[in-house]
Nucleic acid binder design. Structure first.
Lengths: 135, 135
DNA sequence: CTTGCTTCTTGATCGAGTCAAGGTAATGGG
DNA sequence: CCCATTACCTTGACTCGATCAAGAAGCAAG
């Protein structure tokens, strides 16, 4: 995958790529932790850098629900969406009914060229929905 | 409006409320600037605090497109969405076709109780679309 | 193997946002 | 109208995610 993107194959890059594949929706800190556990010492700077590079070439996708830090996932190109629990912050993927971007058309595009519609569903996960809201 | 929300009427609050009404999608720094221009010295802390309080009682809405700082708007309760230019960051409102939250149903809700679907359309504004992409 | 450029390490820095303590002023009862 | 109560604002320090910069290390082409 790295070679296909014309990138050099290095230990930090492989570790980050593997980490995000195995832990979708992981934030940067978690990625750092996983990478260090799996392949020894790696600087936090390298992880930040790799995440940005891989996001740039489209091997990873970065997203950031409001009130959360940046998170990364390896599912790219299928235009899926996210469902976030307001209580505990749990995130699950939601397939896009249409499958291609943009899956929605705006009622009025104001002359803009629309490339993508990003949808975030906000709600409560089964566990949090069971008990009364305590925010 | 403030009294209805059981809040004391103070100069910073009125100034912030007016500023956001007149400048939708303003970020915190802009709000601070506008407020100071209109009603003299106000601490940045007060503005942050007021923005949070007003957002809490529902007089303002906070949103934060990825790669941008927090922005505030006074249109609340009509469940409208946003259209953001990838090039220059311009933001315009898009009315929701349905009008009530959630305006979309997820293909698979994973057992979650969905309260709201937040949609961000990404594209290019008329001005940026005219010239070739230079990111 | 060597060269050259990309990538990683180390350590400092930035900036949005928050915390904490103490002073100030909006409200409501007298 | 005035005072007491308490919510609210000011000041200043601080947190934390993320980025910048300079130099060392490692990968790949010849």
């Amino acid at each position: 995958m790295l070679r296909d993107a014309a990138l050099r194959v290095t230990r930090p890059r492989m570790a980050v790529l593997a980490a995000v594949h195995r832990h979708p929706h992981a934030d940067t800190d978690s990625v750092i932790e996983i990478v260090r556990r799996d392949s020894g010492e790696v600087s936090h700077q390298a992880v930040y850098d790799v995440l940005r590079t891989l996001t740039g070439v489209g091997l990873l996708r970065r997203f950031q629900p409001e009130g959360s830090v940046a998170r990364y996932e390896a599912r790219v190109g299928d235009n899926h969406h996210h469902l976030v629990c307001r209580s505990c912050g749990a995130i699950v993927d939601v397939d896009c009914a249409v499958g291609e971007a943009p899956c929605l058309t705006a009622s009025d595009d104001s002359g803009y060229t629309i490339e993508e519609a990003e949808v975030i569903y906000w709600g409560r996960c089964p566990t949090c929905a069971r008990r009364p809201p305590v925010p």
